[in-house]
Structures are given as C-alpha cells and as structure tokens.
C-alpha cells in the first residue's frame, strides 16, 4: 500500500459571517484507507464534507485531491476529478427506479456526457454495470421500483451505490447508518466494506461501535479543529480525546 495522500486539507477555514465554524483544519487521508471522522454535534463535520465536496466555498486554506487543488471548484468538477459523496438526508432521484438511478449515476463516468444522439438503453456497458451494481447492493428484486418506495435502509444502500457508480476514487459518506436499527446498520457496514474495497473512504459517524468496526484511522474534530488522528487504539488511549470528546460525550 502506498502512503500517497488521497485527500489533503491544509489550514482550511470557513466562516459564516463572523461565526467561524471551521478554524484551521489539517487532515491527511491516505489512499485506500477507511478514515472516520468523529466529533460532538456542531463540531463542523458536515460543513467539512460540504467544503471538500464543493458544495460550499472555503474561506481560507487549501484542499487537494491526489495532489490537485479542488477547493472552490463546483461540485460536478470535483466529482469528475474522482470524489463523490452521500448525504445525511437521503439524496436520490426519487421519481426514478433503482435501475434508472444507477444508470444516471453511470452515464458520466462511462463517458456519455451530454450526448443527445444516442439512446441510454442502447448502452450495453451501462446496463451491465447497473445490473452488477444492483446485485452487489442486494437490490436486484427492487430494480424496477421507484426509489421513493424503497425502505430507508434500501435507499441508503442505493445512495451508496450511486456514489460508487459515479466512478469516484474517494468517497465521502455522511452518517451512513443514522436512524437505523442495529441489524440494518450492520448490513450497511458490510455493504460499505464490500462496495468500497478499492476506494478511499471518509466517513462521518456518530455510532462509536460502527466507528471502531469500520475505521483504519480516526480523526477527532472538535470545534472546527482536528485535535487527534490515529488508529482506533491510539484514539481510544488519547487523553486529549477522552477529555474533549469521549469523556464529555452526551450520547
């Protein structure tokens, strides 16, 4: 495994008016690792994801994806450079079926761009990939069902599938198991491990049992700053983390 950095944040700041939400963020995510971000509510985890994925502009600092600057690029350009994300609230094409969602997610990465001279259904490569993904997501039986009619857990897995389908090398997952029962959460964790083998994964997660199961490394975000990064074992034994987060955790 190389130690190349997939994602690198240097001195990233974000303020909304005078409120400084992210106060000088430094983070290195190695290629092929599963990196989990934890932190108390309001620490800025979601804001950090919004900054990385191009949904928000950074006030200061730089974000690099495989060595290329991506801060302040629009979201679709960030995506084309190899980064995709899921959201805290499920974010799908609700009126489309599972297969249609997957096809739409595959179109750009399969190189079809804005073509208006060829049929989508005629693209065998897209169809094959979509069926393969549906199978890996355990959604083959639901293939022709509109996304809005899936169960919550199925919608979350479809969203992860769409994220992977868009051809991204780095995938950000924002609380993938939020609002799920224990068994559903376990299914999703297995799915994440299955789907993201080759990719680099950055996950925001609240559920500490999920965190320690999933993570290669953990970063702790408190009040807009990373106070510690390390293996699960190191984080568990880190005094500053225990004081700032684990000790005072309200969950």
């Amino acid at each position: 495994m190389t130690t190349r950095n997939a994602l690198e944040l240097k001195g990233v700041k974000k303020n909304f008016g005078r409120a400084e939400i992210i106060r000088g963020l430094n983070l290195e995510v190695h290629e092929h690792e599963r990196h989990v971000i934890i932190g108390p509510n309001g620490a800025g985890k979601s804001t950090m994801f919004n900054l990385i994925s191009g949904r928000m502009k950074v006030s200061d600092g730089s974000i690099k994806l495989f060595g290329n600057d991506i801060h302040n690029l629009p979201a679709h350009k960030v995506n084309r450079m190899g980064l995709s994300r899921s959201f805290q609230v499920t974010n799908l094409f609700q009126n489309m079926t599972v297969m249609e969602n997957l096809r739409c997610s595959l179109l750009w990465s399969e190189g079809h761009k804005y073509a208006f001279w060829k049929s989508v259904m005629g693209q065998q490569a897209v169809t094959d990939r979509a069926y393969e993904l549906a199978e890996r997501l355990n959604l083959t039986e639901q293939a022709e069902i509109p996304a809005s009619l899936l169960t919550y857990a199925q919608q979350r897995s479809l969203e992860i599938g769409c994220t992977v389908a868009s051809g991204a090398k780095v995938i950000l997952l924002d609380e993938p198991t939020a609002g799920m029962s224990r068994t559903e959460a376990n299914d999703v964790i297995q799915l994440i491990q299955r789907m993201t083998g080759e990719n680099t994964l950055v996950v925001v997660e609240h559920d500490l049992s999920v965190v320690f199961e999933l993570a290669d490394r953990i970063s702790v975000l408190v009040y807009g700053e990373i106070i510690a990064t390390g293996t699960p074992e190191e984080i568990r034994n880190n005094a500053a983390v225990q004081e700032a987060y684990l000790g005072t955790e309200v969950h």
Partner: peptide, 15 residues
Amino acid sequence: NAVRDNPERAQFVGY
C-alpha cells in the same frame, strides 16, 4: 429528468 428531480445529486454524479 435527473436535474429536474435533484440537481444536487446530478452534480455529484458529474453533471
């Protein structure tokens, strides 16, 4: 259709 339903998701698949 995708942009009509969810422009944000469309962005995160590259469009």
